[in-house]
Amino acid sequence: MKALMAFFRTSVGKKLLMAVTGFLLYGFVVVHLIGNLQIFTGQESLNHYAHFLKSKPLVLWAFRLGLLAIVVLHIKTAIGLSLENKRARGNDPYDNPSNNGSSFASRSMALSGLVILAFIIFHLLHFTGGVIFPDHYAMKDSEGLHDVFGMVVEGFSIWWVSAFYIISMVLLCLHLSHGLSALFQSVGLRNSKYKPLIDKFALVSWVVIFVGNIAIPISILLGFVDLPK
C-alpha cells in the first residue's frame, strides 16, 4: 500500500493518475453524448431515458459520486503538477522563447481545463440542479414525466447559452486532441509504431464528440428540433 502511494507522490505517478482519470472522463463524455443524441428521436424517447436513469437512485448516486471523485482527483493532481512545473521553470524567462514544435493544445491544457470546469458547473446548475432556469426545469410532458426534452429546447433557444456551450465544446475538443494521445504516453503504451494509430483514435474521438454535441444546440437554434405544437 505504501509503495502504491508513489502514484500520488512522484511526477511520473501523478501523470499516470492524470491519464487514467482523463480516460475515464472521456468515457463519460462518450456515454453522455450517446444518451443526449436521443433528443433527435423525439420528446418521448429522451424523457423515458431520463426517467429510466433516475428510477434507480442508488445506482445513479453511486455513479455520480464516483464521477465526482474522478473529477476531483483529475483537477487536484493537475493543480499540483502545474505548480510544480512552474516552480521547476524558475523565474527567469527566455528573452524570445520558442515553442520548439509543441502544439497549442499541449501548451494550454490548464486553460482549456479551467474553461471546461466553469462550463461543467454552469451545465450542472442549468440542467441537473435546475438552479439557473427553474421554470425550464419544472416542465412536465403529457405523461407527467420530467420534461428533459422541453428543458433542453428552451435552454438552448437562449442564444448565449448555446454560444457558451459551443465555445466550451471547442475547448473540450482542444483538451481531448492533446490528452487522448498523450495519456497513452503517460501509461507507457505509446511509441513511434503505435503513435499513428493512437493519434487517429484521438482525432476520430474528438471530431465525433464535437460534431455530436454541437449538433444539439444548432438543431434547436435552426428549428430542426422543437417542442410539439
Binding site: T10, S11, V12, A88, R89, G101, S102, S103, S106, A182
Partner: peptide, 22 residues
C-alpha cells in the same frame, strides 16, 4: 531515477514534444 529526478526539482512531462525537437 524518477525519485532522484523529482528531488532535483525538475518538472513533469506534459508530452509537448519540445525536448525531442531540440
Amino acid at each position: 531515477m524518477v525519485e532522484a529526478m523529482d528531488s532535483e526539482g525538475f518538472g513533469a512531462c506534459t508530452v509537448t514534444g519540445a525536448c525531442a525537437a531540440v
